[in-house]
Design a protein around this nucleic acid. Structure first.
Lengths: 236, 236
DNA sequence: TGTACATCAGTGAACGCGCGTTCACTGATGTAC
DNA sequence: TGTACATCAGTGAACGCGCGTTCACTGATGTAC
């Protein structure tokens, strides 16, 4: 919970210094995102950012204490951006009880976003950056994305709309879902949980195939193909 | 087709030079694979390979004309290695008409291999390496892997064991499969083709989730979880 | 079998770059009285 | 409102590294006669 005063201070900095700091911070981020698109996260360089902004490379360290912290900031921003897109798509479905429609809206939103920003997609869901391990700070924003799907599962379960008959789930698989059950924070059947996880994985797999070039000279129309695959992946 | 003579020559080089060349070539590859595991393909460096082998960096150029060609050689070798593992798993299922069993064997083989060599997995199916685009030479080896799945679909279709009723496939989706149909080289229904592609994507997605850390603190037992997801992905 | 020549592997220096991070310093901005 | 002091942003040099690739060269290996 933030007080209105604190809010105002954050959104409208008072001093010239604070204004400049805000502006340069976002200029650094913007330049870093360009680099991300051109050479990837592993090669992203503080010096190149400084060069593009016409400042000494050491000056960047007034804004981000290290290259890794810059990467972390990017991760947080990009996860949040994607989460916004996906959440908006989910809630834009007219009849909110049209669960399959919501799933498809989520899938299409992911697809559209990933097509527009393939490098961002690769940064979030592609190979980990060697030598960099995402800190705790990125967990929240990353969970916002999956939270949209979990919200959908919640509504499905609540409405008693889970597919029947539920597939049986062996005890070992039930046990391995313990942390997941805690995480979602509401009651959910094992079957529906597994359907959700499988569908989510399938979605990322479909995006990976397309964006990382594995459908090149295999599938003729990526959009049409993605759509039908997304439909078939629908967990509900 | 190769003559026995040519075969013998390739497998048992005659001259001392040829012997040394073979040995050093594979030493370079081995060292490069170590680097792949430690720092990833984007950072893989010719000089580091040379350093590890105790030779001048320029000497490596007698074996691979550029860093990119070294990456290509690695791709080819690793795809082939995975293809061998997967093909062996597929053909090891006792009753070859146990199609679901074959699917599961393929999935488990992928999983086991990827767990043992996560960096190799990331190289093949993770983010593309910025500035490097895989040449034609890698298409064949990469197709050997998917070829195993396609072989399974072939046997399923041949045996008339495709799941019924087949889901309907809109005309646009049918059209976007044209190249795929040519590629597989045998008659296959749109529904079975889509099931195969969706399942394959789902498999990669499940591996991506697990290996790239997205199941960390979400799923307790990766092996158990993967197994049940793989079963649910079964296209047959 | 011996010799002459051609081929090839490996060297080491060089070219022209790149990087993350630290540090003492200058000069501008902000604040408390 | 004016002054004194504290804070902060940005500089430029430096440390200690890294890289891919080329090139003239040496010395060993291979081959044709």
């Amino acid at each position: 919970m933030t007080t209105p005063a604190a809010e105002a201070q954050r959104s409208a900095p008072r001093t010239a210094r604070a204004v400049a700091r805000r502006e340069l911070t976002s200029a650094i981020i913007a330049s870093a995102r360009e680099q991300l698109a051109e050479i990837g996260p592993a090669q992203l360089s503080v010096r190149a950012v400084a060069r593009e902004l016409g400042m000494a490379s050491s000056a960047v360290y007034r804004y981000f204490p290290s290259r890794d912290e810059l990467l972390t900031a990017l991760l947080v921003i990009i996860y949040n951006e994607l989460a916004d897109v996906v959440a908006r798509a989910d809630s834009s479905v007219r009849r909110r009880s049209d669960f399959a429609g919501r799933w498809l809206a989520i899938a299409r939103a992911m697809h559209g976003w990933a097509q527009q920003r393939p490098y961002d997609y690769a940064f979030l869901y592609g190979s980990p950056v060697p030598g960099y391990s995402a800190p705790e700070a990125t967990i929240g924003p990353s969970a916002r994305v999956t939270g949209v799907v979990i919200g959908l599962l919640h509504d499905v379960f609540d409405a008693g709309a889970a597919p029947r008959p539920a597939l049986t789930v062996p005890r070992a698989a039930h046990k391995s879902l313990a942390t997941f059950r805690e995480l979602v924070g509401f009651e959910i059947s094992d079957d529906l949980a597994l359907r959700g996880l499988t569908a989510w994985g399938g979605l990322l797999g479909a995006l990976t195939l397309e964006l990382f070039g594995h459908l090149y000279r295999v599938i003729d129309d990526y959009d049409v193909h993605f759509d039908i695959v997304a439909r078939r992946l629908c967990p509900i």
